[in-house]
Design a protein around this nucleic acid. Structure first.
Lengths: 198, 198
DNA sequence: CCTACCGATCGGTAGG
DNA sequence: CCTACCGATCGGTAGG
């Protein structure tokens, strides 16, 4: 018995779950959900594929667990910032993403795959984009009310524009094998919309 | 013998090839290249799957034929326009794309899938983006030389920005089931970069 | 263009 | 957590 972890068996199960999630993120990002195999994820995680199905009962459950896990981690990033400050935080998010190719790949590949209405992650991404665009729109609206926005900026259009810009830059960044910098493009865009320097 | 088509056999072969290409575009767009099956494309085209392989020897050959076919059709759109005029034409392209969901789906899904270096279309999309961004950059540069651009517009960054914007809007448009209009967002963006009205 | 087949691989289950 | 298996499906080939 390990004194430092009296619930060693549970801790081990949680660690294995986490290991499976990490390898699932990597493979879903590389080849997409449909083309990824449970056997490959299981082998990378050091277990058999029925072993994997003990932790996640179906392939779809694994996908949804991956998405929920990512939402949980990234959701913490933007709690408490509003208006102009939230727009500034988005530049930080772009910088952060430049350091985690696997996550960027995952969302780029899955969001495209999930445009198909029968894809198991379709609802997730429809809801996610609705929430994201609405959140960015609110940030623009608040910045506008505070008098920080140039008058020609229209919050609804600006929100869709900014989210699209970030997504599109990620495709280019991945195809260029991360050799370019997404940050200045986003930074210059937001800067041009604000009255005060960013 | 049909007098109006003395090479009826050849014409029929070409029509079947074209039919296969159309169904391949639709299925590759719906589920991606890896998850699409030759049997499904063949069935939709009214032949057996070895029959399909008579026209296209491998799955990869079919993919490359689809991409070459699209490049051939769309390449004609921009011959002869330069500078500000080419930027205006890009707005027309967005409007055109809003009328062909299948094509938009195809390129959105495949470009994301092909960010993986070992994807059979990887080279195609790397080259395609290089060419596209370079072409748009040249349009901005020419517009700048003609004095049509606002001074803060930087052609290299503006080119990556505009291409990213178009790609990102397509993802949102597909997830929203084509219920929104991409044109005003792109139009307003380019308009804000030009001195003269669009 | 077809039928019939190949070996490989898939998600999931049985039974322990 | 395992081995062993299920039926289904894959891309491609043989042979006509």
């Amino acid at each position: 018995m390990d004194v430092k972890s009296p619930r060693g068996a549970y801790a081990k199960g949680r660690a294995k779950r986490r290991e499976i999630l990490d390898h699932a993120i990597a493979l879903f990002g590389d080849v997409g959900y449909r083309a990824a195999s449970l056997r490959e994820i299981a082998t990378r995680s050091g277990i058999s594929h029925p072993g994997l199905l003990h932790h996640f009962p179906t392939k779809e459950a694994l996908l949804l667990a991956v998405l929920a896990h990512r939402d949980e981690v990234d959701g913490e990033l933007f709690t408490g910032s509003t208006g102009t400050d939230a727009l500034r935080r988005l530049v930080d998010l772009v910088r952060l993403n430049a350091g985690r190719r696997a996550i960027v790949e995952l969302f780029t590949v899955l969001s495209a795959e999930a445009t198909a209405p029968d894809h198991p992650a379709h609802r997730f991404f429809v809801d996610r984009y609705r929430r994201t665009v609405a959140g960015v729109e609110r940030a623009y609206a608040l910045a506008g009310e505070a008098g920080a926005l140039r008058p020609e900026v229209d919050p609804p259009a600006a929100a869709r524009h900014l989210v699209a810009l970030m997504d599109g830059l990620q495709i280019q960044w991945l195809l260029e094998n991360c050799r370019t910098d997404m940050v200045p493009v986003v930074r210059a865009h937001i800067k041009a919309q604000l009255k005060a320097p960013l």
